[in-house]
């Protein structure tokens, strides 16, 4: 207990105990969810594999070597065999994972940040501002995302940056709508009114009260956004519209491996496919865990 001044009304002394921070309590609840914890572990392992792996297991992922093409797993020096162009598959997975994770994370975060601000502003100010901003969102939603992605990436040769931008450009719509809904209910809360009573303005309302109180929704949605973005990269790559070789990602690996399914070269498909499933699954479990954590935090009295 900290200093108690003599002015404290009788019976209210215990109100001096500090409470653990919100973040710590959120973490407490989150760690109780075994599935979410497993998601974090899987994600950490994948990150280690992609970024530390090449230092442990250096391979040439630039020059092709057709003499070593399509070696089966277990061949000398190639734990998972080689690709149709003779790249070592383990090394290839690492490099591909780097671009998949980078594009997925960056696009997911970008979409979430932009969508959150858009939705919060739209919902807080309401009226004509809201009507106009939401019609933009509706219009953009009306265009099928896949179609837009295919057209854009067919026109411009995609680099990582371009991929991030075009995926974020279709993905910000759903957080925007979600946060707008939250903001609509939050702006009528009495604490926002109380802040207006003190003379505070719109910017303070949006960034100090609305966004922090919608943060649960935002973070949960962000994890799903990242998972979706990784899938988008894979779709595009599968259609051959991703980063050009020798760079690659897990989707491109699947796409090139599919040619050889009839030959029984399963190692060209399964490892990349499993990696995608693992990372998307991990993000979804983390999202579920976070949702529980945020909800419980607010329920607990």
């Amino acid at each position: 207990m900290s200093v108690i001044s003599p002015a404290v009304a009788p019976g209210h002394e215990e109100a001096a105990q500090a409470t653990p921070s919100l973040a710590r309590r959120t973490v407490q609840v989150f760690t109780r969810n075994k599935l979410a914890l497993a998601g974090v572990v899987v994600l950490a392992l994948l990150l280690l594999f992609c970024y530390v792996g090449p230092l442990v297991h250096p391979t040439d992922q630039v020059h092709t070597d057709l003499s070593q093409a399509n070696l089966a797993p277990g061949s000398a020096g190639h734990l998972l065999g080689t690709t149709d162009l003779g790249y070592d598959l383990v090394g290839r997975l690492m490099v591909a994972g780097q671009s998949s994770l980078e594009v997925g994370l960056a696009a997911g975060v970008l979409a979430t940040v932009f969508g959150t601000v858009w939705g919060a502003v739209s919902g807080y100010f309401g009226g004509w501002v809201d009507a106009a901003m939401m019609r933009v969102t509706d219009a953009a939603l009306a265009i099928p995302a896949m179609f837009l992605l295919v057209v854009v990436s067919a026109i411009i040769t995609p680099s990582k940056t371009v991929l991030i931008l075009i995926i974020a450009a279709v993905a910000w719509l759903s957080p925007a709508r979600l946060v707008r809904g939250e903001a609509l209910s939050l702006r009528d809360r009495e604490y926002v009114q109380a802040m207006r009573m003190m003379g505070g303005g719109g910017a303070r309302a949006v960034f100090r009260h609305i966004v922090p109180n919608a943060i649960g929704t935002v973070i949960v949605n962000a994890t799903f956004q990242v998972a979706d973005a990784i899938l988008y990269v894979s779709y595009l790559a599968f259609l051959g519209l991703s980063i050009p070789p020798p760079a690659t990602d897990w989707g491109s690996m699947l796409s090139s491996g599919i040619t050889y399914t009839q030959n029984g070269y399963w190692w060209l498909i399964f490892p990349a496919g499993i990696a995608i499933v693992l990372v998307v699954g991990a993000f979804n479990f983390i999202g579920d865990g976070l949702r529980d954590a945020f909800e419980v935090r607010l329920q607990k009295k």
Partner: peptide, 23 residues
């Protein structure tokens, strides 16, 4: 202000939902 309304000064580190209605 906390003195004036009869609450301990340590209350600054707590969240509003942890207080009773009167507090």
């Amino acid at each position: 202000l906390l003195d004036a309304v009869g609450l301990p000064r340590g209350a600054v580190d707590r969240c509003p939902h942890e207080f009773s209605g009167g507090q």
